[in-house]
Amino acid sequence: MTRSPVPNVSNVQPLLDTDVLRSFVAIAEYGSFTRAAKAVFRTPSALSMQIKRLETTLDQSLFVREARRVQLTAHGELLLRYARRLLQLNAEAVACFLTPALEGTVRIGTPDDVGTRVLPQVLSGFAASHPAVQVDVMAGVSRVMLERLDAGEIDLALVTAGSRDVDPERGEVVATEPLVWVARADGTARLREPLPVALAEHGCAWRASAVDALDRAGRPYRVAYSSEHSAGQRAAVQADLAVAPLPRSLATSPLLEIVDDPKLPALADTHILLVTGARRSEAAQTLTQHVVDAFRALRG
């Protein structure tokens, strides 16, 4: 009788734990142990221990820890590509054998700046955990999104609001950001009189905040450029046609800079408000909670 050879245990390669890989990817994407810990519902010390064990297993350093953030080493960047593929394969394998508990279609409305900056990252996590739910996204100005919500055309909406427009009974504030004056870095628009400004259309919280601040300060201005989308405002500023009131995170182009000028009045904070319809399916309720949790993790 021929016996099968006994495997040499010493030559067996270690298996990578998907839970540890999920923590590793979160740290790489957030650039912070603290923010990643909130996203994966663990403590920073627990994540630190996981990464130490992972580095020991692979015999490589994966992160460079700096004062305010952590960055991947060359080996960390290599592992990140493998980790994302392994996690995706794991999710696909589980989805093939387990009947999804949640199905249906959810329709969400959002302004274009939220839809391009924040929402894709939020929805990617939801799609991984609930692959059978179809999410349809409609982009447009906040006023129109609220009208569609009231008409039952969408299930929930992320809208922008000024401090005076926030109604806690209407929705939940999921993000707050300073509104700042933005100009071309080497431009002269900020020096012109009356001040040329690029504004969103009527009904936008950014526009209302800017007009109210300029009027109260008695600063002469003219609307040199009006656009339904924030991309239009940024284009006008980059062309040095005007200055614009924008959330701080949108002043990221090398051509743009935040204006620190006492002649320009301070602006109120801008908020992202999550508003839900009166009748929500189980899928819509689950997505609503996922959006709240995702924004809470981003704030961390």
Rank of each mutant, 00 (worst) to 15 (best):
D59W: 00
S45K: 09
E55S: 11
R53S: 13
T2I: 13
A217L: 12
L16R: 12
D260Q: 14
A127G: 04
I154A: 02
A231P: 00
H271V: 03
V70F: 09
L86S: 11
Q233T: 05
T276S: 14
A251E: 04
L123S: 04
D17G: 07
T34E: 15
R85Q: 12
D155N: 08
V64G: 06
R170H: 14
L287I: 10
S230P: 01
A200R: 07
E66Q: 11
A297F: 05
T252I: 11
E92M: 14
E103K: 13
V223I: 15
T286G: 10
L79E: 02
S230R: 04
E29H: 10
S45T: 13
L195A: 04
A95G: 03
I154M: 05
D136P: 00
F63T: 01
A26L: 09
R84M: 10
Q13K: 14
L102Q: 06
Q71M: 12
A161E: 07
H130C: 03
E228F: 10
H290C: 12
G232Q: 08
T176R: 14
D150Y: 07
S142V: 00
I27K: 01
G162P: 03
F295G: 01
R219T: 15
A283I: 01
Q285A: 15
S163W: 02
R184G: 04
L80F: 03
D186M: 09
Q50D: 13
R222Y: 06
P245M: 12
V6R: 15
R65S: 14
G277S: 09
K263H: 15
L267Q: 01
P262E: 11
A189C: 09
L156Q: 07
S48I: 00
P262Y: 05
I258C: 04
L274W: 05
T18L: 14
L199C: 13
L195S: 03
S48V: 00
S129P: 00
T286P: 07
A205R: 01
V291Y: 02
A198L: 09
V122L: 09
A235G: 10
A46Y: 00
D19K: 14
R164G: 15
L241I: 10
